[in-house]
Write a protein that binds this DNA or RNA. Structure first.
Lengths: 271, 271
DNA sequence: CGGTGTCTTGACATTTCTCAAGTTGGGTGG
DNA sequence: CCACCCAACTTGAGAAATGTCAAGACACCG
């Protein structure tokens, strides 16, 4: 009776990779492969389902660095999916600081929430220049109501995001700043790997120390010192917006990083 | 084409309230009204849907205080719903401390995750003696695949929980301990009110200071001092496991509490 | 070549932790 | 009914982590 879905891992559909960096013109044709790749982590999407997703995209837009895409309390008409670049969820604190709740990288859905909730409870803005693919809200609702397997896939993605949010909570609540940073870097490395955006132990890392500080809930000054410590200990290197993890096992151990919460497949973990 | 669901607020079905405290024998008949009440916050469930939910419950269990209900990495066979008492989600930190991720009160679903994910990424345990209603996982999957409106309702509950988790993240990451506690108490008061579990400005509050400390990521000692401060300032009173909020507006202001993230209806907010 | 954003450094202030020792209150066996 | 026991709550004093402020260094861009 119950058709169980098993987690399966598929390579991205032939010949098309989620844009690595810079602007290839593939993106302007609303490449949603990053999302399909990600959803495919949970279940194998059928060709018709994939096609359905691709056709749902009405257009794609590019937003320059540091701009608000969605503001708290709005109800956007479209669901946005990151195709290229880094964005973040955030809220403002009473004293004016910005609390970053999540980093969004290619394949991440910014706002499924608005398919069901009547307002955004946080904002989304870009940390680099970002390209988004847009699906009308009505289309998303239509998908939910007519294609169970796609609905499952979106629900799955949402549950995984919730799990990541819980781990961020644990990270910021229970670990000192140095381990906190180590843990965060481990996660970003793995998420990039799982999205096919990494060469070896190196990822594009265009964030400023302020961006990191706002996510970890510490000051820039302290972020700087903690970063120097990790560098000094030979765990990481950072140069020209490229982050290199010199000693993955050591960084993982130091940051108490256990990737179980990311719900990745075996393949994505090893790769 | 798209049938939009509007948020509606309904009183609990006649004559039955979510168990207030103590053990009434109503609970042993697998009262799931707390959940129906909660889901009903988003949309009016049809009578057949309500019936479907009630019939899904195969049994209810009572677990004594301080016991693990679900452990990390397990995949329980049933979805658990709190009917009476307080439980929590938590993870262990490397140094042995416990990080509480969420408090679960009547109407909260402990583990929908396992309908889609293959393992729990955190544990659930009781903070008081707790009664749970159980729905077999297979039944939940069946509901998802055959009753769109109920599936929507569960998805909605999951999105709201995610939103609450984000706010907990902001709270612990961006606010000092005293405001953190004020914010937490505001939330618990409102959640109880929205679940019909409050008289005036007073709620059952059976948590120890250790339970609070583990949720806020501070030590018991500091929790104690901060609590005294709120009491000293005349914001709250705490006696005999009853929490009284003397000055709601002041507590709200002090804790920067804005209930938007809870996605409650107007009615639930005013009441 | 100057300017602006980002990174880095130092000295001192504040929050929170640690440890260690009471105190209180409800429950339980004699 | 008393005596004691244990969990929970309180208190104090000193230590550690992180914040604040202020200034200088670096680097990229127009």
């Amino acid at each position: 009776m119950t058709r169980r879905m098993h987690r399966r891992h598929r390579l991205m559909s032939s010949g098309s990779g989620a844009g690595r960096s810079g602007n290839t013109d593939r993106e302007s044709s609303a490449s949603i492969d990053a999302l399909i790749y990600r959803l495919g982590n949970f279940m194998e999407l059928s060709e018709p389902d994939k096609q359905r997703l691709r056709e749902s995209i009405v257009r794609s837009i590019t937003v320059e660095k540091g701009k608000n895409l969605i503001s708290e309390n709005e109800r956007p008409d479209h669901v946005h999916i990151v195709v290229d670049g880094w964005a973040c969820r955030y809220k403002h604190l009473a004293d004016g600081r910005r609390a970053i709740l999540a980093y969004l990288i290619p394949g991440d859905v910014c706002d499924v929430h608005i398919a069901l909730l009547d307002h955004m409870d946080h904002s989304v803005s870009t940390l680099t220049s970002v390209t988004f693919a847009l699906i009308p809200r009505e289309t998303v609702n239509h998908i939910f109501e007519n294609y169970t397997s796609l609905a499952y896939a979106f629900f799955w993605a949402s549950l995984v995001e919730e799990s990541v949010q819980r781990e961020w909570f644990v990270n910021n609540t229970g670990r000192p700043a140095d381990k906190r940073l180590a843990h965060l870097l481990c996660e970003m490395q793995l998420r990039h790997r799982a999205a096919g955006l990494t060469q070896e132990n190196c990822i594009d890392f265009p964030l400023t120390q302020q961006d990191l500080a706002d996510a970890m809930g510490i000051t820039v000054v302290h972020t700087n010192r903690v970063m120097q410590k990790l560098r000094g200990d030979g765990l990481i290197a950072y140069d020209n917006k490229q982050l290199t993890i010199h000693d993955w096992e050591a960084l993982k151990a130091f940051g108490d990083f256990d990737p179980g919460y990311m719900h990745l497949t075996e393949e994505a973990l090893k790769q």
